[in-house]
Write a protein that binds this DNA or RNA. Structure first.
Length: 437
DNA sequence: GTTAGTCTGTCAGGGGCCGG
DNA sequence: CCGGCCCCTGACAGACTAAC
């Protein structure tokens, strides 16, 4: 009998073990393409129990759709009935909010809030992770409730769990402090010199690459999601009545910042690229390419949904040293702030001065002095003995902005006037830093 | 294999509150 | 006023899953 057997006809050799399980399963329960969806769905849980993960389910789904010699292919409905979409099974926060809003029952709000709260899943012990996550999900629950139209007052009354919130806040504060204690280093690939060189060599007549995108993000300390919306403008007040956001002596601003949804207030521009015109050119170059579909937005898909996986993967791949931390899109913003503040600070900047510059580069509000510290990345170069400077009363601060004339060795350029704007900015910052002390 | 969409855990930081 | 502290939301990264 060892004859013929022309088995290697096609790629049916791939008899995955899950496919075998499926065929046995179908046989045992006498299921086929003739079965109704109702019949099939009765057996869904049992079959699902045999399939350990989504890969297995994928194999099975494909097999169902494909059919065999003995068995014809299942329709889409039948397939869905037998191996239902797992994503519909999750009782997500969003789904809760939707249902609860519909029921209009305050107790439903309350119960679900508690259910989303910390439960001590294992041994009744609530760890930090669970606590913080619980608080986050409760917050999310409130947000979705409001989104679906639940009553504001009910939300505030029945969807707030102050114990959990407080505990979560405490944990997060501790984490922040720990993080600040040991900041990461600047990745080799994004040191100032490397980024600066790449930026200078950019040819805007070409199509931008992901690397160009990354460098521009660094250059402008952007949030990844800001790439398509940020704009650099030049503003000069033409009257004695400038808008409230106008800062005397500054003419370059950014608009389209992500976090200001209500009042889009322009924020001062501070970039490691000292020529604002060039910065703007590079930014619009990137944006035009995205609009034209030649370059992906780092965060959004064409349908407006979030998907930063391709860009994040690219950024991650740029890690050169084993001992470096992972590079993420968000890290580029912090790196950019550091580069910008270093570039614009004078030869002997005080930490306060750098913080001030950082805040401007990051386009924060200037309320919180300590905010910029979050971004103080460790840098071997600037790390030095903490000379306990008498930083208080030292009035005679030499003009820190001495930076302007040198470093300007850019080829050509009649654009000096623009950089003068930057320089006057620096002067003001330096003064502010002094006054604050 | 690659891409897209959704969910959760985590971080950043705007804003409110309160004592001085 | 104002600076510090706390709350809580919005944005991010990664895990998952299905679709292509």
């Amino acid at each position: 009998m060892s004859t013929a057997e022309p088995t290697q006809k096609t790629r049916k050799a791939k008899t995955n073990k899950f496919v075998l399980i499926l065929e046995q399963f179908l046989e045992r329960y006498n299921l086929s393409a003739e079965s109704s969806p109702e019949q099939l769905s009765e057996h869904a849980p049992e079959l699902n129990a045999l399939l350990p993960d989504w890969k297995a389910r994928k194999c099975v789904k494909e097999a169902l759709a494909r059919g065999t010699e003995k068995r014809s292919a299942f329709s889409k409905e039948q397939k869905e009935a037998l191996v239902p979409d797992q994503r519909n099974m999750i009782y997500s926060v969003r789904k809760r909010a939707q249902e609860v809003t519909k029921s209009e029952d305050k107790w439903d709000i309350f119960i679900n809030t508690l259910d989303l709260g910390p439960k001590g899943s294992k041994d009744g012990v609530i760890d930090d992770k669970e606590m913080v996550a619980s608080s986050s999900n409760q917050s999310r629950f409130r947000k979705y409730l409001a989104e679906y139209g639940a009553d504001r007052e009910l939300i505030d009354r029945y969807a707030k769990d102050s114990k959990t919130t407080t505990a979560s806040n405490k944990i997060q504060q501790e984490r922040t402090e720990k993080r600040l204690a040991n900041p990461g280093r600047t990745p080799e690939h994004f040191t100032f010199e490397k980024v600066h060189r790449r930026l200078q060599n950019i040819d805007t007549s070409k199509i931008p690459s992901m690397q160009d995108l990354a460098d521009v993000i660094v250059m402008l300390s952007m949030r990844p999601a800001e790439v398509s919306s940020l704009q650099i403008i030049n503003y000069k007040p033409d009257s004695e009545d400038p808008p409230a956001w106008y800062k005397a002596g500054y003419s370059w601003y950014c608009t389209g910042c992500r976090k200001q949804r209500d009042k889009p207030m322009p924020m001062r521009l501070l970039s490691m690229e000292k020529d604002p015109e060039r910065a703007r050119e590079l930014l619009t170059w990137i944006q035009d390419a995205i609009k034209a579909g030649k370059l992906r937005d780092p965060v959004y898909t064409e349908t407006g949904k979030r998907n930063n996986v391709p860009f994040a993967k690219f950024i991650k791949s740029l890690k050169t040293n084993q001992d470096e931390d992972e590079i993420t899109p968000e890290l580029l913003r912090k790196i950019g702030a550091k580069h910008a503040s270093m570039v614009h600070a004078g030869p002997n900047p005080t930490p306060q001065h750098l913080d001030n510059l950082s805040e401007i580069a990051l386009r924060h509000k200037i309320n919180r002095l300590d905010a910029g510290k979050n971004y103080a990345l460790g840098d071997p170069k600037s790390k030095k003995e903490p000379k306990s400077e008498p930083e208080t009363g030292d009035g005679p601060n030499p003009q820190t902005q001495a930076s302007s004339p040198a470093s300007q060795s850019r080829n050509n350029d009649p654009k000096k006037s623009q950089t003068m704007d930057m320089d006057s900015m620096l002067a003001e910052i330096a003064m502010l830093a002094e006054i604050r002390k």
